[in-house]
Design a protein around this nucleic acid. Structure first.
Lengths: 246, 246
DNA sequence: GCAAACGCTGCACTGAGTGCCATCACGGGT
DNA sequence: ACCCGTGATGGCACTCAGTGCAGCGTTTGC
């Protein structure tokens, strides 16, 4: 969604509320038209505003910098994600929660496949845009990390765990996202990201149920319910190993 | 090492090879003097070059952008790290190897504590520099990920695992690095980073040994050597579960 | 109908970054 | 000793992103 979905019909005053930022949309459309035609760096702000038929100063009213026009929806998405994380009751499984937050972000990409692919190709070859994207991704990662830090408060190495898990979730998400963007429609975004996140979730998740761990000399014997979450098993193994080996 | 360690004595022609870029050092010194005195954004290139007593054009001969002068040593460090990763025989434990690479980077920070702390304070409050630092960190992360991808070639979800582990290593490294930079000398850099990396290493390490997994009805029985890397155990469990439950 | 507010525009200015050419120091060759 | 090629430097002019300011037209509230 975001950028190009809303048609920029103008004139009617009743639509002002719904189509308020028609100028914004026009600028985005003009910018991408030129970026795709002659490249990002070969396009100046003047080119964009003259194609959109607006004043140069207006561009910077809607976008603080030239890079921002390429990521028009991330500000809102980031706010959505933060709101989602804050909306919890506090007793959810933290790792699952941040994975769900990542899935939200993916959904935003998946809503506008063609736009996302175009932007991907653009950012892939323009160092400036790549750098900007990194700072965007960093803010997502900070959002996840802050949430986890709060949830892990008091836990040993809580902030370390939080930062590492946030980074792993973002990396998995991006890996899957890029696979999908490169696949040209042959992959399903949700499935791809689910798979990637599941591997992170199983590595770091720390859910509920039961399991028994026993140690005999230099062999470890574990008996677990087949439906036990993998990570619970791992934690039990860890506990047994540390109580003995250390 | 890096910036300010080499004394910029000039004149002797025999030293030309060793002290070649004395101008580079002068520019870095002038830049930091002004950055610390009046701030990064309040300092123009003209201010720097006039303090250093050189022509404006020469600045851009040594630094492609204003941001680069803040990170004068990363280019070399990145090359060192890449060379280190490439220098292996190929039979090292991959995760340990990338952790060692991260330790190399830390050592570069630790060699110039005061410089590193100054830069940290600068980048923390200048968004522009923060963004630039992200792109630097990203290149380190890509270096690690590329190495792991090569080592994991053929493994199921190899690139995914590689990206996630690289991200986790970088996150752990940065978490520890920042703790150290904030600690004002009260922490030991090596110890702090070692601790952080060890937690990642134990979570993702996948070294040598053996393990047996068996399934009986709705119960899973796992027998593993006590020194088996945790992750290897998890992978076996995963394999058994998927082959049955799916 | 008026006034305050808001959105849009143009203009002039700063500062980063680049291309081009003149200059100068140096080392090698004659 | 002289000349010349090379490379490092400096100066100049230019493009372009981004900002502050002032003017102006439209909308909105009273």
């Amino acid at each position: 969604m975001s950028s190009s979905s809303a048609a920029p019909r103008r004139g009617d005053k009743a639509e002002a509320a719904a189509t308020r930022p028609s100028m914004r949309e026009a600028l985005i459309a003009a910018a991408f038209e030129l970026f795709l035609e002659r490249g990002y760096e070969q396009t100046t702000i003047d080119d964009i505003v003259s194609l959109a038929g607006v004043g140069r100063r207006s561009f910077f009213r809607y976008f603080p910098s030239k890079e921002d026009v390429v990521f028009p929806d991330h500000e809102r998405c980031l706010a959505d994600m933060t709101a989602f994380l804050a909306s919890g009751t506090g007793d959810e499984e933290p790792v699952r929660r941040v994975c769900d937050a990542a899935r939200m972000v993916l959904r935003m990409y998946a809503e506008n496949p063609t736009f996302s692919v175009q932007r991907y190709r653009l950012t892939k070859q323009v160092p400036n845009l790549r750098a900007y994207e990194l700072s965007v991704v960093w803010r997502y990662e900070r959002g996840l990390a802050e949430y986890l830090r709060a949830r892990f408060r008091g836990r040993r190495d809580g902030t370390l765990q939080a930062d590492v898990i946030a980074a792993a979730v973002v990396a998995a998400h991006n890996n899957a996202l890029r696979s999908w963007l490169r696949s040209d429609g042959r992959l399903d975004a949700e499935v791809t990201v689910d798979h990637a996140l599941r591997s992170v979730q199983s590595a770091f998740g720390t859910p509920p149920p039961a399991l028994v761990g026993t140690r005999a000399d230099d062999v470890l014997v574990v008996v677990a319910r087949r439906d036990a979450p993998l990570w619970r098993v791992v934690r039990e193994i860890e506990a047994v190993r540390e109580s003995s080996t250390d």
